[in-house]
Design a binder for these strands. Sequence first.
DNA 1: ACCCTGACGCGTC
DNA 2: GGACGCGCCAGGG
Length: 111
Amino acid sequence: MAIADNKFFEDVYQVVKLIPKGRVTSYGAIANYLGVRSGARLVGYALNASFKYDNIPAQRVVNRNGLLTGKHHFREPQQMENLLILEGVTVENDIVVDFENIFWDPSKELL
DNA sequence: ACCCTGACGCGTC
DNA sequence: GGACGCGCCAGGG
C-alpha cells in the first residue's frame, strides 16, 4: 500500500501531487476528474487523512470559491496560507486572490 | 450492522 | 441572491 488502500484516496493523492507549484485547484475539479459526480466531499475527506502522509501539497486544494476551507485542519491554521504565499500564491482574508487565473483544472491541463 | 458526520458542489425555492 | 436540501462514499462510534 503506497498511500492508501482505497482507490479514491489513492487517486486523489495522485492528482494533488501533480498540481504545479503556484497553482491551485478545487475539490470539485478533482472529483470531476476522477469521474465522481458531487464527490467533492470525498476529496476533502481524503485530504483530511493526507496529513499523515508526506509530499502531498494539500494547501493547493481549496473549495470552488478559492476559500481555504481546510486551513483549520493543518497543524497551524496559518500554515496553509503560509505555504501558498511561499509558493507565490497571493492569499487575502483566507481567499486565493486571482483564483480563476491560477486555477489548475486536472481535466483540462492534465491528460 | 445501523446511524452520523464530513477540507464540497449544485439545483431549487 | 441568500438559505436550504440532497447526493456522493468512506470511516468511526
